[in-house]
C-alpha cells in the first residue's frame, strides 16, 4: 500500500534538490539509498518515487537531473521510466555527465486520490551495479543513477 504521507507535494515550477538538505527521503518509496550531500543514488534495479499535485492537472513535464553511474567496467546505463504503470521513456546513457531527463506526463495518467493527484514513478535501471563488484571502490550499494534535482513544470497548451 502506498504511504500517502510520504508523497512529495509538488509545486509546479519549483526546482527541488535531492539530498539531505531539501528532499531528504520525501517521496521515496523503495529502491533508494540514503540522501547524501546534494544528491541521492538509487539502490537496486528499480527506484520508486511518489509525486502528488493539487488537481486539476494539465499537461506537465518532469525534469530530473543527475548523473548516470558509468565506468569503464559498466559503460552503459539504461533507464526506463514508468508513470502509474505507463511506460513513458527510455534513455541509454554512455557518459558520466550531468544529464537532464525530460519526462512528459499526460493529465490522464494521474490517479485522483481525494484532494490530490498521485503519480507513482518507477525508475528502472537494469544495469545498476555495485562498485565493489566491478573494482570501483568499496561501495556495496547497487548504483545506476545519481539524482540531483527534480522540477515539475506545466506545459502550455
Amino acid at each position: 500500500m502506498v504511504r500517502r504521507d510520504n508523497a512529495l507535494d509538488c509545486e509546479l515550477g519549483v526546482v527541488r534538490l535531492f539530498g539531505a538538505a531539501d528532499l531528504g527521503t520525501q517521496g521515496m518509496l523503495s529502491g533508494w539509498s540514503g540522501p547524501e550531500d546534494g544528491h541521492t543514488w538509487n539502490d537496486g534495479v528499480e527506484a520508486t518515487y511518489l509525486l502528488a499535485v493539487r488537481p486539476p492537472v494539465g499537461r506537465t513535464v518532469l525534469l530530473v537531473s543527475g548523473e548516470p553511474y558509468v565506468t569503464r567496467a559498466r559503460p552503459v546505463q539504461e533507464l526506463t521510466v514508468f508513470g502509474n504503470g505507463y511506460r513513458i521513456q527510455m534513455w541509454r546513457m554512455t557518459a558520466r555527465v550531468e544529464t537532464t531527463l525530460v519526462i512528459p506526463l499526460e493529465p490522464e495518467w494521474w490517479f485522483q486520490r481525494g484532494q490530490r493527484a498521485i503519480m507513482r514513478l518507477s525508475f528502472y535501471l537494469p544495469n545498476s551495479s555495485r562498485p565493489k563488484d566491478i573494482a570501483d571502490g568499496a561501495d556495496g550499494r547497487e548504483l545506476g543513477f545519481c539524482f540531483r534535482s527534480l522540477c515539475l513544470r506545466a506545459v502550455p497548451d
Binding site: E11, G13, V14, V15, R16, L17, G19, A21, D22, D37, G38, S149, C151
Partner: peptide, 22 residues
C-alpha cells in the same frame, strides 16, 4: 528553513527553486 527563491527576468518569473545547495 530552506527558502524558495524566484528568479525573474524583466519582472517575469523564469525559475523558482529551493535554496538548499551547500
Amino acid at each position: 528553513e530552506r527558502l524558495v527563491v524566484e528568479v525573474l527576468v524583466n519582472d517575469t518569473v523564469a525559475v523558482s527553486m529551493v535554496a538548499a545547495m551547500f
